[in-house]
């Protein structure tokens, strides 16, 4: 009898467990029900994602999250920013803690396949560089043999670094750090000779220094780092929304749609591509479960790609990054949004 009681309980438990697992619903419905987008960002990298003095998050990656929230929820303010480190970011995404990850993350093969992420595009074409103090007298990464180098753990950076030094027959001592802030502190104290990460991150880090001119970024770029937003693998519809929100921002720049002239273009644009993008003809939004004006709101949130770039990391900001590879394809860059039709 005892045995049958046991089996019965076990069976009941299994049933309960099964029910607990019942379909959680798509990411889109979850976000809408919550009426808030959970966006994974970095812990603080001025220009990309950092809270300002009053606690508002601003930055290049933040602007993408706001555009996505505007497209889906109609309000760019309905975002909860979740700071993640190099080590925690992918777990945060795959466990469902965040709906989208916009954290200077490099699109790599194994992350796309083995880690079960889906990168929805590239919002910044980058590469890994080195920063040193100018008084160190080093002018090339090839002169760093024997140096102590600060790197963030859990990044592509540490893998590239190992490969680069081996390929060039050089030795180094890594100092593993967990966040950009910690790296900055170690580097400033002279606990490492060089700090290495994505060149954009170096520029942003240096801009925050009290004496940026006493540090130089070495000319070598040792890797390709296409940075982009990522979502969980398996929810293609949500992936589409994330992908086309990014594309909408890029296409808007290409077609000259800005946050300032958008209302006017909605009324008067004769360009059929712009009309489709802004939802005045065809119903593109409905094809992925949104309304007709999703892209309009996304662009209004912080402007088109060019406006976001200029406001957060462009040459007029302390970070001072040139467009370079991140110019439109029409300007000799790599940005190329597929057609909206």
């Amino acid at each position: 009898m005892k045995k049958s009681v046991f089996l019965g309980t076990a069976a009941a438990a299994t049933l309960l467990a099964g029910m607990g697992m019942a379909q959680e619903g798509s990411t889109l419905t979850q976000v809408k029900e919550r009426d808030e987008l959970n966006c994974g960002v970095n812990t603080g990298l001025v220009g990309f994602a950092a809270p300002d003095a009053s606690g508002n998050w601003t930055g290049f990656d933040v602007a993408y999250c706001r555009a996505l929230a505007a497209a889906v929820l109609g309000d760019p303010a309905k975002v909860k920013f979740v700071p993640t480190t190099g080590q925690t970011r992918f777990t945060a995404l795959s466990s469902g803690e965040v709906d989208v990850l916009a954290r200077n993350s490099t699109w790599t093969y194994s992350r796309d396949t083995d880690l079960n992420l889906d990168f929805v595009g590239v919002n910044y074409y980058d590469g890994q560089g080195f920063m040193v103090r100018s008084d160190l007298g080093v002018t090339s990464a090839k002169e760093l043999d024997g140096a102590t180098i600060c790197i963030q753990t859990g990044t592509t950076t540490e893998l590239n670094l190992a490969d680069y030094f081996r390929a060039n027959n050089m030795a180094y001592t890594p100092v593993n750090i967990d966040s950009n802030a910690e790296g900055e502190q170690q580097y400033m104290a002279g606990a490492c000779d060089a700090y290495t990460t994505d060149a954009s991150g170096l520029a942003a880090t240096r801009a925050a220094f009290a004496d940026p001119e006493t540090h130089i970024i070495l000319p070598e770029i040792i890797s390709k780092e296409p940075l982009g937003p990522a979502v969980r693998h398996g929810d293609s519809n949500w992936g589409d929304i994330a992908r086309w929100t990014l594309n909408a921002l890029i296409a808007a720049e290409e077609y000259g749609v800005t946050s300032r002239n958008i209302e006017e273009l909605v009324r008067s644009s004769e360009n059929p591509e712009v009309q489709r993008l802004l939802g005045t003809t065809d119903e593109l939004g409905a094809m992925m479960g949104l309304d007709a004006e999703w892209a309009r709101r996304a662009i209004l949130a912080g402007g088109n790609y060019g406006e976001i770039f200029a406001a957060n990391i462009g040459e007029q900001t302390p970070i001072g990054l040139a467009r370079g590879l991140n110019a439109q394809w029409t300007q000799g860059g790599l940005l190329y949004a597929p057609p909206f039709r």
Binding site: F6, T9, T14, A17, M21
Partner: peptide, 28 residues
């Protein structure tokens, strides 16, 4: 003792089962 034993076993069962299902769900 039997009741507690059954509860513990059920909890363990639930944990393992849940883990396996969730891993499968994430394609891992």
């Amino acid at each position: 003792q039997v009741i507690v034993f059954i509860l513990v076993m059920a909890a363990a069962w639930w944990l393992v089962d849940n883990t396996i299902r969730n891993l499968a769900l994430m394609g891992k």
